[in-house]
Computed example of a mutant assay.
Amino acid sequence: MFIFLFILVAGLVLIYANVSPVAPGKKGKLIALGILISIFLGMFFRDTLVGCAVVAFISVWLCQALLLYIPWDLFRLGRRVVLRQAMSTRALMLASRILLAATVLLTIGLFVYGVPHNGNYRLLETTVKLPSSHVVVASTDSAAVADSSVTDSSVVTLQALSGFTAVFFSDVHVDPLFRRAKLERMIASVDSIAPDYLLFGGDLADVSTMQLDEWGYDSLFKKLTSKAKVAAVAINGNHESMQERGGSDPDAWMRKVGFVVLDDSSACIGQACFAGRTDFQVARRRGIERVPLASLAPNDSVRPWILMDHQPKGIEPEYSGRLPDFALSGHTHNGQFFPGTIVINFVWRLAFGEGMLDGVRWLVSAGVDCWGPPVRAGSNADMWVIRFTLDK
């Protein structure tokens, strides 16, 4: 958190220093100060359409501005060292105006391409072959399926050579710029797939749960969760910590619309066992430690174990014991837009798609929508169809 704040402050200082020379004297400083003020005002009124739009534009512009300003400042520094004289005020003003215009044009270009591109999402598919030590099962007791506390495999009967299907999505980030039509298309997609499980990887919204109700998202999410034949399972993400800080209870809201919410807890439901971890930032906001993975491992050794953790950090090094059969995360957005799409691969060991983390087969979704700017360039919004089969 402190590193992030340091980078943010350093970036804002760099922006101020490079924008202020666009006009002489106080006029340039006021322009630069106005940009910084608009950033903070946008964040303060982010639950409004205007505030959200300001934050969206500034977020993309900041990335493009830093991309050009950093090498420009290095060039100026090198020039001063070699020539031992500063650039003339006139030349600096001209260069600053050109750079500012270039960053604005880049940002506009990203919005022209990236907003329509984000309006769609890809349905990606993968198959998970379960180890032969597992037998996929189906419950004969409908009450047992509905009760997320059931962990006794005696309530199930063996169903040989069978499997189950899950639809996984993450990072909805409902806000004033979120397109309601996208959620309606998601409902239609899930309805056509008719999965056994609907799995949500966290980061529900960037507004209060009260606003979600006012905008009618409670009824839409109820429709979405009703499409799961066995259960809809959800975890919290780092943005749920922001909702909690604002007085909302996102976990309770998700339960209200039909999710089984796993908040550092486990549940064996129907054909599979799930462990959902509390997000790191949610735990930090609550002032608690995350429950060790060993405490979340299911006692049921028959059904496969699926781990859900919003941030793909892997499992703690000190953990020893049965490994999950599969793990799911979101959070990264696969960088969302350039240059994030490049930087993201240096931040996370697995930024998108399937791979291995700490000996566990892991899948990281790029998210079905975006945080802040609804812009995607170099990445795609996605939902995953996961088919679990027996490894014969």
Rank of each mutant, 00 (worst) to 15 (best):
K26I: 15
A252F: 04
S379H: 00
A381Y: 00
I193F: 07
A188V: 04
V104S: 04
S189A: 13
R376P: 01
L357T: 05
I15E: 13
R122G: 07
F326A: 04
G270N: 05
F352K: 13
Q281I: 12
R286G: 03
H331C: 02
D191V: 10
L30D: 08
L161T: 15
L92K: 12
A10T: 10
S241C: 03
L177D: 04
A275M: 05
G246S: 15
F352T: 13
L5S: 12
A86E: 14
R46P: 01
G353Q: 05
S132Y: 11
G276D: 04
N238L: 03
V60M: 05
V174Q: 03
F388G: 09
S241P: 01
T165H: 11
G237V: 06
L94S: 11
C52G: 12
L106D: 13
A231Q: 10
V13L: 13
L106C: 14
T126A: 11
G109L: 08
E354T: 14
V137K: 13
F178Y: 15
A267D: 08
S189N: 14
F75A: 14
E125S: 14
R361N: 12
V230C: 01
G367K: 00
S208E: 02
I344Y: 00
D213S: 12
K27G: 03
V190H: 02
A275R: 06
A23S: 06
D191M: 10
A17K: 10
V19N: 07
F352W: 13
S154Y: 06
G246K: 13
R376F: 02
V22D: 10
G237Q: 02
D213P: 00
T140G: 12
G11E: 03
L204R: 01
R387Q: 12
L14V: 07
F44I: 14
A194P: 07
A188Y: 08
P312L: 05
V135F: 10
V347G: 02
L130W: 08
G340N: 00
V190I: 12
L123Y: 03
E184A: 14
E244N: 10
R285N: 14
S192A: 15
W72K: 04
W305Y: 07
R46D: 11
A53S: 14
L77W: 13
A188N: 12
L83P: 00
A272G: 00
V55W: 08
F57C: 02
V115K: 04
P195Y: 08
T341W: 01
D196W: 09
R322Y: 04
V54Y: 08
A381R: 03
P250Y: 05
Y121Q: 01
D147I: 00
